[in-house]
């Protein structure tokens, strides 16, 4: 048992079989501490999305081990998924932020966030209180009763982040969260993610191509041909200096 929020050891994923088999992940190792924001960078077809889907309990890895919040969720040596209820696993232990906010259009802002605690069994009042707290923390409390369509792109992304945090998961998986944004807004989203990671002790993995935000990571995982390589974020010192000016 480790203190890491995420720990992945020797994770592999093979699509297909026989001559047509493709090894998307070839023994990935990764660890992310609570409150840490790491980047996951790699070219198209390198295995980023496959890793994200394995971590998100959406597809089953072929072998290896994954633990979230110190608890093993997948271990091929132990028979695969350790929980039968992957819905509950995703709902309670993993938050998702997508490239587009993908908010539920028929729910207002507060209910988009409150839906998750409600699905987890919290009372309506408790769930809405939690949603209001998150909206306050993300500076969109004044839009609580607005419909999703009435929000700006930046506001929608902040609501999406609030939704990911709704059940206080140990992990948030962010898939290209800044892709459609200009530099200023992209950096703003990263500031918010860092702040939330620090405030809620949540580990965040940001999958990105976006060069604008790469300097914001203290640690980066490069993924190439199904393998990961960790490195310290060299641009971070420059970024910090610029931020502190």
């Amino acid at each position: 048992m480790s203190d890491d929020a995420i720990r992945i050891e020797g994770l592999t994923k093979r699509y297909g079989s026989g001559d047509t088999a493709v090894d998307a992940l070839k023994g990935v190792d990764m660890s992310v501490a609570p409150g840490e924001v790491v980047g996951l960078i790699g070219p198209s077809g390198s295995g980023k999305s496959t890793l994200l889907k394995c971590l998100g309990a959406v597809i089953e890895p072929t072998s290896g081990r994954m633990a979230i919040g110190g608890e093993t969720i997948y271990d091929s040596a132990e028979g695969g998924w350790q929980s039968r209820d992957l819905h509950a696993l995703r709902r309670d232990r993993i938050g998702f932020v997508f490239q587009a906010p993908y908010l539920i259009p028929f729910l207002d802002v507060v209910d988009n966030i409150a839906l998750l605690p409600m699905l987890a069994g919290k009372s309506d009042a408790q769930a809405r209180l939690r949603a209001q707290d998150l909206l306050l923390a993300l500076d969109v409390a004044h839009r609580a009763k607005a419909s999703v369509a009435q929000l700006s792109g930046g506001e929608q992304q902040r609501v999406a982040i609030a939704r990911a945090l709704a059940n206080q998961p140990p992990v948030i998986l962010a898939d290209e969260p800044t892709a459609p944004l200009d530099s200023e807004r992209a950096l703003n989203v990263m500031r918010i993610l860092e702040q939330m990671a620090s405030q809620y002790r949540t580990a965040i993995i940001v999958v990105t191509h976006d060069e604008k935000i790469i300097p914001t990571f203290r640690r980066i995982y490069h993924i190439r041909d199904g393998k990961t390589y960790a490195e310290q974020g060299e641009g971070r010192k420059i970024y910090d200096k610029r931020e502190n000016k």
Binding site: G56, V58, H87, A88, L89, R90, R91, D92, F96, F98, Y102, I104, P105, F106, L115, L116, L119, A120, R163
Partner: peptide, 16 residues
């Protein structure tokens, strides 16, 4: 379809 995929991803059960 997209909303249903998101609902499933965030842990909404099939019966819901």
């Amino acid at each position: 379809i997209r909303e249903i995929a998101v609902l499933k991803l965030i842990g909404t059960r099939n019966r819901t």
